Computed example of a mutant assay.
Amino acid sequence: MKYLLIGESKGQHADQTTLGDIGNQAPQQGGNPTIRKIGEALNLNTLCSAAIKFGKLGDKEKLLEIIRVGEAINDSGAVDIAVRYFFGKKVIKTAKTGFEKWASEKGFQSQDLYFLPLPQAANMAYHLWEDYDIGVGVAKGGLFLAYLFDLFGLDTKIAEAHAHNTEPTFKWIDEVSPEDFHDKRIVVLERDVVTGNTARIVYEELKKYDPKKIDLVLHNNPGSILSELPEYLHSLYDDIHYPGKFSCLNIDKVLENLENRLNRLYSI
């Protein structure tokens, strides 16, 4: 299979070629090591290989094109690789350091934290944070999403809830008042669900405040790591979001927004 890639513009026109064609031509381009690396990737004729090679070359323009093509043909593996390289190690490291500091201020130690893949989480936060009045991060799995939504500008509160092989428990880590949630649009932030019992406990606690709506955001796609999402959660939460529901076509804007916010806090 060949994938279209937009080449260099010529005058008023853009030259269209294919990954396979570029790979076939590369060995004829002399000793240029960059062209050879691209040729090696493209001769494999897989979008994932091209994403890795262009990522190592730091070619963000080509990574964006790979993301565009990957979205069009539903190649999530290539898209995941491309967005990770597009974000880069520096931004990921800065976000991780900021997350650890933020969590420490709330009483959580670094060894207790889950630092989850940044691009997918940041993409959801970018698209969703303005849709809500307040977020509730469920410790400890939901802390990273809560940090990112908070970073983008959403007021977030942290709670601990447990329901796995124990008597159900719920407690607030942050100070809250009924006014924080009454008639508000609430988003619950969690890593994933197994039985759904923890998500149910959180929902029942928040429902007491008579909010306008309660949505659930998961970092992991249902079925990708654990089982499919329990059906009864759909009857509780107004909407349930996860990375697979969001396009990465605007990932350049996501990164720009994230970098600006990180820079204001940590001077990256």
Rank of each mutant, 00 (worst) to 15 (best):
D155K: 15
A159Q: 04
I240F: 03
D215F: 02
H241F: 15
V188C: 06
L249C: 04
E228W: 05
V188Q: 01
E204R: 14
V187S: 08
K212F: 12
S247D: 00
L249S: 09
F170G: 07
L229G: 00
H164R: 07
E175L: 11
V217T: 03
R185N: 09
H164W: 14
G153A: 05
D192N: 13
H162N: 14
F170R: 03
E205C: 06
N250T: 14
S227R: 08
S177T: 10
P168A: 05
G153R: 06
T166G: 04
Y232Q: 13
H164Y: 15
G196P: 09
G223V: 07
I240Q: 01
L154M: 09
I201L: 13
I186A: 01
A199T: 01
A161G: 09
L218D: 01
E204W: 01
P211E: 06
I251N: 04
F170L: 10
T166Q: 14
D239H: 12
V187R: 12
F152K: 08
A159R: 02
T169H: 00
T195Y: 08
I186H: 06
I201Y: 03
D180M: 08
I186D: 06
Y242Q: 01
P168T: 03
Y232P: 04
H162L: 05
K184W: 11
G153L: 12
P230M: 07
F246N: 04
C248W: 02
E179C: 02
I158Q: 11
L206H: 05
